[in-house]
Design a protein around this nucleic acid. Structure first.
Length: 922
RNA sequence: GGGCGCGUAGCUCAGCGGAAGAGCACCUCCUUGACAUGGAGGGGGUCACAGGUUCGAUCCCUGUCGCGCCCACCA
């Protein structure tokens, strides 16, 4: 058996402190876990166990723990600890992501702040060295924070997307996909970030609703003399981006648009440039939009690019990489344009930023009467998710993955149920995206990342290989002589390596034992926001390279918001730091709050009030354990709850089994909120509120078999509670497990235990009926006491009670007296005059309060109850009187209604008698 | 424009075909030997609206209104 053995050697001081102090306990418990090495996958004692694996969504090395991480990892930890306790061989694979753009930005910012030479000044090699240094210093932060949360990852297997093994996987995947024709280089428009100076993928572009304008421009028709007052001398095009007009190479109208029929085939003279560009007919042009004629700028617009290809239009790039006008020495721009004063003025704008250029161009067009009108218009403008600048469609050479091809098996796998999403409706989202997937641009003009394994010969021919030596040898063969090669400078999209995570972390491309044992993984737990970025791509890569899905279940959770439902953001200043919450309330309270608040279809709100409440829950549990300890309720080796004789003990065993079943079922179905809620109710409302209270007379009473049994049962049920709660609240449960271990046989750590509660054969309806009656009776009496403000002890008379009830009353007399503050219990044929009469499970309990109670108030109370009984009877009668109901409803339902009728009638009779007797009292 | 989700107690949410639930908040009372980070009791809801299906609808279907998210779209 693994793990540290607790027992008399434990250093924990007894007795247990009055309140639970997470800050004192958590660090110590963490260390014992580490010593026990029980998070390690593949421990010898679990060699024969079924594996269960989860790969962590690798946080950015730049990151520090935020609430999203806290939620995500709490849920994974619940699953891992649960499965570990069920005896599975659990691998929770941890690691971090190199986060290309984010990390490069962080280090560049640091250089700037320290006024050190920038990236380009220091050069690639020195800069990368610097990033690695930064990683060595700061990269461990998030891992340590995850440990504070209690994440039971196999830390011995921690990986980094740029470590040696994973880099090897990346190389191999790239080369193999290249050779299979699934990775290729292409010159087309990409989303270009003019601030970060790199291409980004479609997914890294966020569309921002912006209030802008629609400018209607007049393009003079060739061969006519432009006259602002004569529409036949020009054609109007509408645009939101007038500055791109310098790169226009056509004007398109719809083929069926009669307004422009005669103009098709003619040319216009592009203002400010003087270029003659054709008026073409293309269905892309929408007669409903704008003027119905649209300017075509193939080098700066995705749609225009396609139109340009169809019509073999030239592509004129007018921007530099920084999105400044690049006109001088721009052969494409100058090609076929005659010198003119207008052109000179345009060339003078060379180097101006795109937004400045827009203003300047509009001013010049205005001067010339070339603006027909300006309409306000709101539209969406693409922004870079990292840089937050406007993204420019830009014509460059980039590497692409043929995602359409790779998506096919990934779609099929979900259709066939090999991978299922929880909640299921995310499958629709997945299909929608996968079925319309576009080529994935994977090259980035960055330095930090996996450099693309492509080398170029002097003629630009590419050689893709796993190593430079191999590429060189291919090149030498190709050229027939030793030829100097130049390596592609770009690196891969960070998500490229993340896509391999489920198998690269297990040692792929080597055929490792881990790969064999833990792939496919069981479950992926992640946020909906990275379904496309990550989940879909892991599906594609996993299926392609391992011929199997990377995970069977994908559990998708939503966002953590603040108490008022607002998204947490630095700018709003409403970010709740999980570490701060842990410091204040403990990791268990935070975890339990997150788990309890998870609700499918809803974001998770997290307020301090919730965490505090769950901290209180931890305290409650703590004190229950303290109570058990005070009363010498030590665990008894081999105690079998089935052998319990005391009804109370049989009842708590029954309730424990019920709770265990509910919690188990809920975790199995990923209903974390349900599981945590069931645990909460069982611990607080069943064990603490009733079992502990009802057990007091037994525990403080004289020694005897009943006392011994109750001690054993109290300890047993507490143990079960600790187990059931451990996945949610690992620290406090482990601590209490250790503390209670001091009073009884030695045992391994909770975490290492293979002993999840499977409590069969403990159901006991008889015990439930008896204790249920006791509880309801006590509750009813308390209610009357509170309502009537009675503080003194009062007698209880059971009126016309059955033999069974009388017997119960005798057995529970002491408990009822104590908990309901009853002075004595007697039986009578009928309730004494002037008493309050309570109907509890069909029996009348009378409180003789003549002189104490206000008879009018009591009459009103009974009348109200009578009304309720009448209403119940009427409702049931209406149903049973309905021939259709009796004929069509299922037999059980009809039977149930009849029983309800009987119950209600019985109740009514008792209440009527009570009222009658009350009259007599007056 | 396409898709998804949500409107249930003051707030956050369960329930999803057979008599409206929890936690918090609120009100009243209580320092009794586990716990005031506590205990006892209580008030509070035409389950968004309108139709339909059904013996029966908070629950299923259709529509309307409101809220949120995702994808696509710089004429």
């Amino acid at each position: 058996m693994s793990g540290v053995w607790f027992g008399r050697t434990s250093k924990i001081a007894m007795p247990i402190d009055k309140t639970y102090q997470p800050s004192e306990v958590e660090g110590r418990i963490s260390r014992t876990w580490e010593q026990a090495d029980a998070f390690r996958a593949g421990r010898p004692e679990r060699a024969g166990a079924k594996p269960y694996s989860i790969v962590i969504p690798p946080p950015n090395v730049t990151g520090s723990l935020h609430m999203g991480h806290a939620l995500n990892n709490t849920l994974q930890d619940i699953l891992c600890r649960f499965e570990r306790m069920r005896g599975r061989d659990v691998l929770w694979q941890p690691g971090t992501d190199h986060a290309g753009i984010a990390t490069q930005m962080v280090v560049e910012r640091q250089l700037m702040e320290r006024q050190q030479p920038g990236r380009r000044e220091m050069g690639r090699e020195a800069f990368l060295k610097r990033v690695w240094e930064w990683k060595a210093e700061s990269g461990g932060t998030i891992v340590n924070q995850l440990k504070r949360l209690g994440a039971s990852c196999d830390w011995s297997r921690e990986r980094f997307t740029m470590d040696e093994g994973l880099s090897r996987a990346v190389l191999k995947v790239f080369v193999e996909l290249y050779r299979a024709g699934l990775i290729y280089k292409d010159k087309r428009l990409v989303n270009w970030d003019p601030k970060l100076l790199t291409a980004i993928s479609d997914l890294e572009v966020v569309q921002v609703e912006t209030r802008g304008h629609l400018w209607h421009l007049r393009y003079p028709i060739e061969g006519k003399i432009f006259d602002p007052n004569d529409p036949s001398t020009f054609i109007v095009v509408a645009t939101t981006r007038p500055e791109t007009m310098l790169g226009d190479t056509a004007v398109a109208v719809h083929p069926d648009d009669e307004r422009y029929e005669k103009l098709v085939g003619k040319h216009v003279t592009l203002p400010l440039v003087g270029r003659k560009i054709p008026i073409i007919a293309d269905e892309y042009s929408d007669p409903e939009k704008g003027s119905g004629a649209v300017k075509i700028t193939p080098a700066h617009d995705f749609n225009d690019f396609e139109v340009g290809k169809r019509h073999k239009l030239p592509q004129i790039n007018i921007f530099s990489v920084e999105a400044k006008l690049q006109l001088k020495d721009n052969a494409e721009f100058l090609d076929g344009v005659a010198k003119s004063p207008d052109l000179d003025a345009t060339l003078a704008m060379h180097g101006s930023d795109r937004f400045a250029a827009r203003k300047a161009i509009l001013a010049r067009l205005e001067d010339k009467g070339l603006i027909e009108k300006i309409e306000p218009q709101s539209h969406v403008v693409p922004h870079g998710d990292r840089s937050n600048v406007v993204i420019e469609p830009y014509l460059t050479d980039q590497w692409y993955v043929n995602a359409k091809e790779l998506a096919k098996p990934a779609i099929a796998a979900v259709r066939q149920g090999k991978t299922r999403f929880i909640p299921k409706n995310w499958e629709t989202t997945y299909f929608n995206w996968m079925e319309n997937i576009q080529p994935w641009c994977i090259s980035r003009q960055l330095w930090w990342g996996h450099q693309i394994p492509a080398w170029y010969g002097p003629d630009g021919k590419e050689f893709v290989a796993i190593s430079e030596a191999e590429a060189q040898s291919d090149a030498d063969k190709h050229y027939g002589k030793k030829t100097a090669l130049k390596r592609d400078e770009d690196v891969l999209d960070t998500w490229f390596s993340s896509a391999l995570w489920p198998f690269s972390t297990l040692g792929w491309p080597d055929k490792t034992r881990e790969l064999d044992r833990y792939y496919p993984t069981a479950t992926l737990v992640t946020g909906f926001d990275i379904i496309f970025f990550w989940v879909a791509r892991m599906m594609m890569m996993g299926l392609h390279f391992e011929k199997d899905v990377p995970f069977h279940d994908v559990y998708i959770h939503r966002l953590v918001r603040d108490a008022s439902g607002a998204k947490m953001s630095k700018s709003k200043g409403n970010v709740v730091d999980p570490l701060g919450v842990i410091d204040e309330f403990g990791a268990d309270a935070l975890r339990f709050t997150l788990a309890r608040n998870v609700a499918p279809g809803h974001d998770i709100r997290l307020g301090p009030q919730d965490v505090e409440n769950n901290r209180n829950f931890a305290t409650k549990l703590w004190n229950a354990a303290r109570f058990v300890e005070f009363n010498g309720a030590a665990r008894v080796e081999g105690f079998d709850p089935k052998t319990a004789k005391e009804t109370l003990n049989r009842w708590i065993a029954h309730e424990t089994a019920k709770a265990a079943a509910e919690i188990t079922r809920s975790i199995e179905t990923y209903d974390f909120g349900g599981a945590a809620g069931a645990a909460y109710r069982f611990v607080w409302n069943v064990y603490c509120d009733w079992y502990v209270e009802l057990s007091k007379p037994l525990l403080t009473g004289p020694d005897g078999a009943a006392k011994d049994e109750t001690r054993a049962m109290a300890a047993w049920a507490l143990d079960e509670i600790l187990k059931l709660l451990h996945p949610f609240m690992p620290f406090i449960t482990e601590e209490l497990w250790a503390v209670t271990a001091e009073q009884g046989p030695q045992r391994p750590q909770l975490l290492a235990l293979s002993g999840w509660s499977r409590l069969d054969g403990l159901a006991d309806d008889k015990a439930e009926a008896e204790i249920g009656w006791v509880i309801e009776l006590i509750t009813a009496i308390r209610s009357i006491r509170a309502e009537m403000s009675i503080t003194a002890a009062i007698p209880l008379v059971l009126a016309g009670a059955s033999a069974e009830t009388s017997a119960r009353a005798t057995r529970w007399a002491e408990f009822i007296k104590r908990l309901a503050r009853v002075s004595e219990i007697s039986s009578a044929a009928a309730a004494p005059q002037g008493s309050v009469q309570l109907v509890v499970r069909g029996e009348v309990a009378a409180l003789p309060l003549k002189g104490v109670i206000d008879l009018a108030v009591e009459r009103a109370r009974l009348a109200k109850e009578m009304q309720r009984a009448d209403a119940d009877i009427a409702r049931v009668d209406a149903k049973l009187g309905n021939a259709n109901f009796v004929a069509r409803a299922p037999e059980e339902v009809v039977e149930e209604e009849k029983e309800k009728r009987g119950e209600a009638l019985g109740r009514k009779t008792k209440i009527a008698e009570a009222l009658e007797r009350l009259k007599g009292a007056v």
